[in-house]
Design a binder for these strands. Structure first.
Lengths: 314, 314
DNA sequence: ACTCGACAATTCAGTAAGGGTATGGATGTT
DNA sequence: AACATCCATACCCTTACTGAATTGTCGAGT
């Protein structure tokens, strides 16, 4: 098979139709160039140039080779560039796992950031509950996870990305709270939820929320009267909308709540404030060899107040 | 820039994911293969494989390179093949110049022959009068000419391809010949055309026919009463069809004559037979470097009675 | 915990490939 | 007829690739 330098030599001669000029263009002297062309012709078993001491011209075989040689060389250059880009993280593919809520808060922020700084990187998006994301991170199906702080599997590391708080969600105009409850807009002590029908996070897929809600109830001395389980916030909100009970959801879920649901901030007194923190973490496999992932992690690293922060106020 | 052997080495390792096995496939030993891959990685500035002593796996950069490397190598192989084919005349392009009449006789025969024996050769067809073909042969615009024996330009050689004869064409049912003329099907002595309105070949574009017709008339002692000139047979036949006079055309033109024209063989006695020969020649530039042309010339060379011969009976 | 086995990396010596300088030979030019 | 131009050839030298032998390292099996 011919070599790439030979193709370059051929293209130069074919364009200049002059061995001396072509040699100069290739930064070499004329004799080795002549030899390279001869070698190429020998390897191809084809005369590429008709040459006398007076003029050089392409043969039919040479004319056939010229566009193909250009194409091959072009492709080599492009390949070189692409590989460098992927290797340096300027291009590539990142698979992001994210929870339903993160899909409306952290994910768009991250994608916007990435689009600005890593335009050649494409993303594969997978909505997954935190535990499935963790599995994916171990197996390599997922490069970056936007998930709740659950117990990490070996090799997976994480860091806090956003903080949020839970708010009370209940059917609009409901009388569940009783007449003693504060009006709309006033923070609501959790005691008012004592023994009310509670729509709860499942222990398996949403253990983090499950445990958090139980802790909050316990700290307020309220009894959790669980009447339904669901693993995803939108499902819980649908139950609320249907009037089946109350629940606690992250404040960022208010942005995509269905009509017929109203929200109350939770009264933070008596230590509730300190407990009411929902963490969203950024997780990745520490052995990842995907340069685009490493670059993204660097990019998302909070550079003193310029990072992604807690959204949505009361 | 990387080299093609390096790409081959890379593809082998990427497919085997085992340096030893890949080396065997490449008919070399493992150490140089390892170094080739290292060199490739260095040149690309990218880690292509994640390798421990236990397993070898592609990195993101390697996964990017693999399909492109395959594509480049494929293209090189195809290019090699194509150039060889063009060089050996198995593929390529031949521009054929041909006269209007040859387009209905010699050209189809030649094309059929070529299609069977040189299926990868494509043809560019240009209908041209003989003199224009001659110009094209000199300039290189035309590779092969099917033309009348006219004075050859330097560098252009030719050989006889087909022989034909002239026949008389006259308006159907015409009384121009008079009552003494033989009935349809009988050869017609040229004396019957004496002083009849004669539709003639132009001296410039169709000098060969022009001169031939005059010689035939002279040998028969008939006077040529030229009333119209045209350079192409179809135009002359159109005049005949319109009843404007008589003319002489190659017998092979009978195949595409319009309705309203009848033909008579020319009586060959008194030396007319020997004069009434229309030659069609195959011409080419003897310095042609187009291998497909050379191969075609070899193919068309009359191999003892198997060549293209005189068509059309009486 | 230790040894063994598998496998990629390293070292070293021999050889082939590629570039440079000097020169030859053919072809138009003045 | 001497000259200029330009591609081909000859020869030398440096670089780079290959193979054989060896080392280093990681995981599996006992």
């Amino acid at each position: 098979m011919f070599s790439l330098p030979q193709l370059e030599a051929f293209v130069a001669v074919a364009e200049e139709l002059h061995f001396g000029a072509a040699a100069e263009r290739l930064n070499m002297t004329q004799p080795p160039l002549s030899r390279q062309i001869q070698m190429l012709e020998k390897k191809l078993g084809a005369q590429l140039f008709g040459r006398t001491s007076r003029k050089v011209e392409l043969t039919a075989a040479g004319a056939t080779l010229l566009p193909r040689a250009r194409q091959i060389l072009d492709m080599c250059i492009k390949t070189d560039l692409d590989v460098r880009r992927v290797s340096s993280g300027q291009a590539g593919t990142i698979t992001v796992g994210y929870t339903a809520i993160a899909g409306h808060s952290a994910l768009p922020l991250m994608l916007r950031r990435a689009a600005e700084n890593m335009p050649r990187v494409s993303f594969v998006l997978r909505e997954l509950v935190s535990t499935d994301q963790m599995d994916g991170l171990v197996k390599g199906n997922v490069d970056i996870g936007l998930l709740r702080p659950i117990v990490a599997r070996p090799g997976v590391v994480s860091r806090p990305l956003m903080q949020d708080r839970l708010v009370v969600a209940l059917p609009e105009g409901s009388s569940l709270l009783g007449t003693m409850a504060p009006r709309n807009g006033e923070p609501l002590p959790l005691g008012f939820l004592d023994r009310l029908p509670l729509l709860m996070y499942s222990t398996k897929e949403a253990r983090y929320f499950h445990d958090l809600v139980l802790r909050l109830f316990a700290s307020a001395g309220a009894h959790a009267n669980i009447t339904q389980y669901a693993s995803q916030v939108p499902a819980l909100l649908a139950f609320v909308q249907a009037g089946l009970g109350v629940t606690l959801v992250p404040a960022s879920a208010m942005a995509f709540a269905p009509a017929g649901v109203e929200f109350h901030e939770i009264d933070g007194r008596n230590g509730v404030q300190e407990l009411n923190r929902v963490e969203l973490e950024l997780a990745w496999n520490e052995e990842t060899a995907n340069p685009a992932v490493l670059r993204l992690l660097e990019l998302i690293k909070p550079p003193a107040g310029d990072g992604i922060e807690s959204p949505g106020g009361a």
